[in-house]
């Protein structure tokens, strides 16, 4: 693409405002859709694995050590290496990449779900038990709604990491938002490189915003408070669990 100036910001602006980049199978909307497709599929699989496991361990307290060490090891796995390794061992298709991303998403979701169940006040659980609720009812009516905020914090952290990391898939299989970075570097097109980085950052911020809204509205009205600052004082332990469940972006 020809730019009117050698200034990188001008090139970035021109690349972003060129209508040609906003249409077709190689355009920005299509790449965003591919990217979100990876995120959706990955989260679906990660939730299917982590939610039952986290609820089970959180409710029964069995296998806690296993979860802590398993999560630690998974967290240390370099996702870039896993995406590339799976691409070589299986195929440069969608599924190997998704499974590598699932390994990234499971730790924050799993520890978020587990921490959510554990964050529920034990006296509340005991009260429910003494009222004759079955274990299943305790899990679904007491632990789940009360721990939901912490749980969704973990899910949000997982989504954020997957949105960020799905960009590396483009280096193994040419789709998703990382493609703009790959192409920008290969053909030395700085407008595409920096414009692509802007799109990636914007998508990440937008998705995180949606997750934040979801987190806010999914909370039972009885637990919702109007002043989050005051609450963070009272429940610093809970907030901390959310903060530390956030892990890191990649």
């Amino acid at each position: 693409m020809d730019y009117s100036s050698s200034n990188l910001f001008v090139q970035m602006g021109e690349w972003l405002s060129d209508p040609e980049n906003w249409s077709g199978s190689r355009g920005i909307p299509m790449r965003i859709a591919e990217h979100l497709g990876y995120v959706g599929l990955t989260m679906l699989l990660a939730l299917a694995i982590a939610v039952p496991l986290g609820l089970y361990v959180g409710h029964t307290g069995k296998g806690r050590v296993l979860i802590v060490s398993g999560v630690g090891i998974l967290r240390a796995l370099p996702t870039l290496g896993m995406v590339f390794l799976f691409a070589l061992l299986f195929s440069r298709g969608v599924l190997p990449a998704v499974w590598a991303l699932v390994l990234l998403a499971v730790p924050p979701v799993l520890s978020g779900i587990y921490a959510g169940v554990s964050s529920v006040n034990r006296t509340v659980v005991d009260a429910a038990r003494s009222m004759g609720l079955t274990e299943w009812q305790i899990l679904t009516r007491v632990e789940l709604p009360n721990g939901l905020q912490v749980m969704l914090g973990g899910v949000r952290a997982g989504v954020l990491q997957v949105v960020a990391t799905a960009t590396v898939v483009a280096y193994a299989k040419a789709d998703g938002l990382g493609v703009f970075l790959v192409e920008g570097t290969q053909i030395n097109d700085n407008g595409r490189l920096f414009g692509g980085a802007v799109v990636i950052a914007a998508v990440a911020i937008a998705v995180d915003g949606v997750m934040a809204l979801l987190q806010r509205f999914a909370i039972s009205p009885g637990l919702r408070t109007t002043r989050p600052v005051a609450r963070s004082q009272q429940e610093s332990g809970r907030q901390e669990a959310v903060a530390s469940a956030q892990g890191g972006t990649t």
Binding site: F194, I200, A204
Partner: peptide, 17 residues
């Protein structure tokens, strides 16, 4: 938390600028 949301690859590309 806003900075934290920006993916590292995008950050690595931007910081030189």
């Amino acid at each position: 938390s806003l900075l934290y949301t920006i993916p590292s690859l995008a950050m690595f590309v931007f910081l030189p600028l």
